[in-house]
């Protein structure tokens, strides 16, 4: 297996302008449907230096859409459809060719102390970054202009976007997520005991699905929206208007500021905050 491992130094670059051909001997290939796309994608495999210790993936990007998926393997596989067809036309790149002057707009991948860091912090580039890591990996993602999707991860998940939506699905552990303008969607199959969580958005809806037996102390703050849940929430904030009305299958908790409540007797803090969106808390 080809691994770019140089003792915690920069282990690889995926150029946004020039495509690195994926190593032929690499057994972990993600076959792409479109052969033209394949030419424009680059893939890199990075080993975690200490497989028996907790793993962490850190992603920082300005323009890319980031998708992270847990898989049944032990390396981090980073793939980027570095040049979109639109970009190709814009830059007048002849079909079947790629530019050689790499560097700017590149994606940098490093590994140190079991932390794989993927960063693409230049305003050039764009497109997608797809990353596969072992299911049990903690993940921290920061994006500015595009969304984040995390699937099938078990660990401490921290995701942040300014303009994109943020979604964590089919996962377990703990989630701390925010988006300024996008929606925050979280579906947790299982939660790590004792972990605090928080979900926030300025303009988007917070849509969180939790296991039915979760024990939590809820703090829900909305300015211009409402809070809906199908959990049996015991509202503990007496000063709050707790008029309940049935809407659809869920009970509606009405109000305009902060509501405190408990689920299943209470537990770690879970905070939900949105200014213009609404809060939906579903029972799984």
């Amino acid at each position: 297996m080809n691994r770019f491992l140089m003792g915690g130094m920069i282990v690889g670059m995926i150029a946004a302008l020039g495509a690195l051909p994926a190593p032929a001997q690499n057994p972990v290939q993600n076959p792409l449907q479109n052969p033209a796309e394949n030419q424009n994608s680059a893939q890199i495999t990075v080993a975690f230096s200490n497989p028996s210790q907790p793993r962490r993936l850190v992603v920082k990007t300005l323009m890319h859409k980031v998708t992270i998926k847990g898989y049944d393997g032990k390396d981090a596989i980073i793939e980027s459809s570095a040049i979109s067809e639109r970009r190709r036309r814009e830059r007048n790149i002849p079909p079947g060719m790629h530019p050689l002057n790499v560097g700017r707009g590149g994606i940098e991948v490093t590994e140190a102390n079991n932390v794989v860091t993927v960063s693409a912090e230049t305003p050039l580039g764009g497109g997608d970054i797809q990353i596969q890591v072992p299911v049990e990996t903690s993940v921290t993602v920061n994006t500015i202009n595009n969304g984040v999707s995390v699937e099938n991860i078990s660990g401490e998940i921290e995701v942040e976007s300014v303009n994109g939506g943020v979604s964590v699905t089919n996962s377990s552990g703990s989630v701390v997520a925010t988006s300024m303008n996008g929606k925050v969607t979280v579906v947790l199959d299982k939660v790590a005991p004792g972990k605090a969580m928080s979900f926030s958005s300025m303009n988007g809806t917070i849509d969180v699905t939790l296991p039915a037996d979760i024990k939590a102390n809820l703090k829900m703050k909305v300015d211009n929206g409402d809070v809906y849940t199908d959990f049996d929430v015991k509202v503990t904030n007496e000063a709050f208007d707790t008029t309940e009305s049935k809407t659809g299958k869920g009970v509606r908790i009405r109000g305009n500021r902060t509501t405190y409540g408990t689920i299943n007797g209470g537990g770690p803090e879970m905070q939900f905050t949105t200014f213009n969106g609404r809060i939906l808390i579903h029972k799984k």
Partner: peptide
Amino acid sequence: QSASDRLRGVS
């Protein structure tokens, strides 16, 4: 390092 732990610290 973990934001979840820092949230616990805040509570």
